[in-house]
Every structure is written in C-alpha cells, then in structure tokens.
C-alpha cells in the first residue's frame, strides 16, 4: 500500500477537514456490529488473538454500521492519498458513497478488534450492477470500475456456458488500519483478511467454485500475496489506467507503481491453502512468527501450483 506520488498543496481548510474526518473514524468503535448482523455471515472467524473477522452483505448490516465501514475505507484511502481531498471536501463526504443498484449486493470482509470494536482490516467485494445475470461477453453488461480505469474488457475472454455477471465480484483494495501500531496484531490482521476473503469466495462460488474475483492491484504487493495464498491470477499487462480529475478516486492511479488488472480463479487446492492459514492463526494467537507460514505456502506453490 503505497501513497499516491503526486502530493499537491491543499488549502488549510481542506487539510483540517481531512484530518477531522480521519480522526472521526479513528475514534469510532463498533463493538455491537457482530451481534447486529442479520442472518448468518458469509464468514466468521474468531481466534484467540483478540481479532474477529466477518464477511457480510450490505443488507445484513444496520445502516449506521454500513456507513461506518465505508467511512473506515474512506479515511484509509484519504490517508493513503487514493482519494482526492479536494473532491472529498467539495462533496462534504465522510464515507465512500453508498452504491445503490438492483444488482448483486456488495460483500464486506472486515477484521475487528474484540477489545476496542475498531476496524483494523478490510477488503470489499463489489457485486455486479446488472439487475439480471448476463453472459460475460454481453455488450450491455455493466462495466466494472477497473475496466473503466484501464479501458479494457476484462470479462469477455472468460465467457463460457454457466458463467454470468452475477458470479463476478470486483475486489477492492486490501486495507490495514494506518493508525495501528506495528506489532504482532498488525502483522496478523492481513492474514485474517486474506482468510476471510478466501472463505467468502468459496462460499459465493459454491461447490463448483463458480466465482470470478477481478480487480487491479500492484504486482509486487497484493498480486504476489494473492498468488502465494493459492489464487490463480491472470494479469493483464500494458494498460495505462487513469480516471478523470472529476472522479473522487483519480489519485489512486497517480502512483509510482501502477496497479495491474487481474482476473482470479479458484483452483481445487485453494481450500487447502486456506486451511493452512486458518491453522496458523489458530495456533499463533498473536505470538507465533509468520515466516514459517510463508515458507509453507511458498513450498506448496512449488508442489501443487498454481
């Protein structure tokens, strides 16, 4: 997670606004969120390290919690320089805009501190905006934000019988609370998120693992990590992503290392990889070093692929 390279001077009032919004979200705790979820979460995992990870759909959350989650994302994006402070201020935003559509609900995977109720890690899966499922090569299907930014068609090559746009989920950036001090917990949070992410994909895909995670990420960071964890990724090279200056997220593509689009598939071995991560988290309880886990996963990649 690197910061946007173009640091522009912003007015003191905008700077104060951004600082206040970040402080606002830093102070918010959501102890009651797990008990407020309607129905069964797509994934829930609590280990002995004081962290609780949940995966829930939009409609499973009371509105204030949903806004709180989108606020966490918003403040982290602001701190990372991935959102325009000027546009955030101009629109008086304190959370990312709610996505309202008749398609597939978004899924939120978040890791909470059991003690403070604060969100420490997050990744989102945005569902298709098509009201009805369409073939992946349908000309009228809604475009993904990654496709718009990179000006490519990511799904057409994957068109096949049995596949449709409602099986596609756009992976939002993996986030870890910027205010979290370095230490064992900070090191564990991404693993909890990755585990929740993987388990959620397996749930969404069903027995046939028919789910297509797509998005863009940096090859040296998230793409490398997702591969290490067993996801099979097709990466698209050679794009020049950008968003217009009127788009809230335009700074996200103003960075040294550009994100590359990817389409992921779940190999048969994926569940086994997640079992290894889960077993590590169960044993680690916040104290075991992560190096042996990385070594195990690396060896597994060499042995079983992908």
């Amino acid at each position: 997670m690197t910061q946007a390279t173009q640091q522009r001077p912003i007015s003191p009032s905008i700077r104060r606004y951004v600082a206040a919004i970040c402080k606002l979200h830093e102070d918010l705790g959501f102890h009651g969120l797990p008990d407020a979820v309607t129905g069964d979460p797509l994934h829930v995992h609590e280990s002995g390290d004081g962290l609780l990870t949940l995966a829930v759909r939009d409609s499973q959350l009371p509105a204030r919690y949903l806004r709180g989650i989108l606020g966490f994302r918003f403040s982290q994006y602001l701190q990372l320089g991935w959102i325009s402070p000027e546009l955030a201020h101009q629109q008086a935003l304190y959370h990312e805009p709610l996505r309202r559509h008749d398609g597939v609900e978004d899924v939120h995977i978040l890791t909470l501190s059991v003690t403070t109720g604060k969100i420490l890690g997050y990744v989102g899966l945005a569902g298709s905006m098509d009201p009805a499922p369409l073939p992946l090569d349908a000309p009228v299907r809604s475009r993904l934000t990654t496709e718009i930014a990179h000006d490519i068609n990511m799904l057409a090559p994957y068109a096949a019988p049995g596949w449709n746009t409602h099986q596609v989920f756009e992976v939002k950036r993996f986030l870890r609370d910027q205010a979290m001090p370095a230490g064992p917990i900070a090191a564990l949070v991404p693993w909890h998120i990755v585990l929740g992410f993987g388990r959620t994909l397996l749930t969404l895909g069903g027995e046939a693992r028919r789910v297509l995670p797509v998005g863009d990420a940096k090859e040296s960071v998230a793409i490398r990590h997702l591969r290490l964890m067993g996801l099979r990724l097709d990466v698209v090279n050679g794009t020049s992503p950008s968003l217009p200056g009127t788009d809230l997220y335009w700074p996200i593509y103003q960075q040294d290392e550009l994100a590359k689009p990817f389409v992921g598939r779940l190999p048969e071995t994926y569940a086994g990889d997640l079992d290894i991560i889960e077993a590590y988290l169960e044993d680690a309880r916040g104290v075991a070093p992560v190096r042996p886990l990385v070594a195990t996963l690396t060896q597994r990649r060499q042995e079983v692929g992908p």
Partner: peptide
C-alpha cells in the same frame, strides 16, 4: 465532521 461521532458504539 461532528454528527457521525454519535454513530459509533462508544
């Protein structure tokens, strides 16, 4: 800046 402060659980 101020009103969402009341929306947390603390």
């Amino acid at each position: 800046q101020y009103l969402p402060r009341f929306a947390g659980d603390d």
